[in-house]
Design a protein around this nucleic acid. Structure first.
Lengths: 142, 142
DNA sequence: CTTGAACCTCTACCTGCTGCAGGTCCTATC
DNA sequence: GATAGGACCTGCAGCAGGTAGAGGTTCAAG
């Protein structure tokens, strides 16, 4: 039996986050001590580790929910898990591509700026006028 | 004089978003028509375009606030604007580096999976056991 | 039996918006 | 001048994925 603090320490997850996962139904409601404190089994620790690792790989909580469901029914074909992972890979590749465009533009921006007064600052100039950009970038929220 | 709808259409910003920018003090409070509707000057349009463009380049609203302040005082040296842009560039490069690690790991994950049953699914296996990863990745929220 | 670290619930806040409800204004057309 | 209907108004709730704090209880070591 583990306390929530033990799970926290072992998985590097904040205590509040574990309670949050319980609240949104990602973690099962654990048993309680006579005084009302959460007491976890080893399986809960594994589940939390799974969740955290998936988060580290950028999976959104909804995807993790699906993966956990799949993980709980071992006889099903794994095509679904595979599809989720591929979707995540596509997302990551999309974000990479967009960030690469941004990096290029930002690099050019700071390279062109010679540190004079704000009035002739290249950085501000480029921000003022999108047409000075070499590439389209409809990033925002990527 | 422009309506909020005109600003919206010209900058590709939702009407609500413009009102939100006003609420958080990024956009100045415009004048109003006799009936209480917002009426904008050309300068407001420019300001909104600046904000949007900065957002597209991934600048957080706080940074944009600083950049706007700088932009309003043209005699100051532009070192500050430069620093903000460099900071943003560093952020983008950090995110890029992390995403590249993720991509590698995800690629390996889906490549190893041969589509059999969940019980022996590589995807789930890797998620279960971080030690199967080739690289450390403390992504989360990047 | 005491102490204090760890736990509990509840609520609010973060970023950067977006959407809806329910009501008002503006302007073109008849 | 009346009317239709699109554009506008305010205010509030909600999204992801947590994080922080208040104010109170429990647990376990000494």
């Amino acid at each position: 039996m583990h306390t929530i603090g033990t799970l926290s320490a072992r998985t590097g997850t904040k205590v509040q986050t574990i309670r949050y996962y319980e609240q949104i139904g990602l973690m099962r409601e654990p048993g309680r001590s006579s005084g009302g404190q959460r007491r976890y089994h080893e399986a809960d620790l594994d589940r939390l580790a799974f969740i955290r690792h998936s988060r580290q790989l950028g999976f959104p909580l909804d995807a993790i929910r699906e993966l956990l469901d799949l993980s709980d029914s071992p006889s099903r074909p794994c095509a679904e898990a595979d599809a989720i992972a591929r979707r995540q890979l596509r997302q990551v590749e999309l974000r990479l591509a967009r960030l690469q465009v941004l990096r290029k533009e930002l690099k050019r921006m700071v390279a062109d700026c010679d540190g004079d007064s704000v009035a002739e600052c290249r950085v501000l100039e480029v921000l003022r006028d999108h047409s000075e950009c070499l590439t389209e970038h409809e990033e925002i929220g990527g």
